[in-house]
Amino acid sequence: MNALPIDPALAWESLPAMLRGLMTTVVVTVIVLALGLMLCVPVTLARMSRNPLLAWPAAVFVVFFRGAPLLILLYLVYYGFGQIEVLRDGPLWFIFGSAFACAVIGLTLNHVAFMVDVVRGSLEAVPAGLTEASAALGIPPRDTFRQIQLPLAMRYGLKAYQNEVVMFTKGTAVISVVTVIDLTAVANEVFELTYDPFTPMLTAGALYWCLVNLIRLGFRKLEAYLSRHHIAVEKQRQPASAGFTALAARWKLALSQKEQVL
């Protein structure tokens, strides 16, 4: 036993298995995030619809799956699907019977419910004046949504989305309860084999940390790209004369008041 609670040899030895677990974590995360991006916009539009037949089910969906604890949700999906005869005997049982797919379904339900509020907040933050200007120009509503509201909402909602993605990625650890061998599951296995409480958990923790920070770097790049119109203002200010700098500052202020939301 050395002073550190970590056994480097064990960490090294378990690394390949850990990386396989990390791979599972990444694959689940990527699949659910992709499904989330696809599903969140239609569900949000339903939620924001003036038609109660669309708005109500969407609202119930959000309230239910936001509120349902993820752990319990996963148990319900994994063990509950097996109780439903039509599913068990149906042609899609290879999906509903698989732990991996159940994990993806449970996580997606929860993630989409959170995303609906993120997307809704971002869409509502787009200044009404811009939508009106677009309508007044004779741009059809569909195009206004795609070309004005959605791209601006993406900029406004990026920080909130980043938070959700980071929290979600760390939260995927719960899928080990339905027998998916993700990073946390591997760490648990190593612990059960060695009774070393620190080494596997700290190794897994370091890998989660790397993953989360990789995500953060990605978001920083994306943000720089999406807010290039702000960056252009910053660059312009440097060689500017004092009078112009004051002017730019005023416009930046006006702009941030108009655009700032989250």
């Binding site: 811009l130 677009s134 741009i139 791209p151």
Partner: peptide
């Protein structure tokens, strides 16, 4: 409009091209 309402994520040129392309 009083508040100009230019699309902040598009260049000046793109602001002016959008409606002719999508509306006409």
């Amino acid at each position: 409009f009083q508040q100009f309402n230019l699309f902040p994520h598009l260049t000046i040129l793109e602001n002016c091209m959008l409606a002719p392309r999508l509306g006409r």
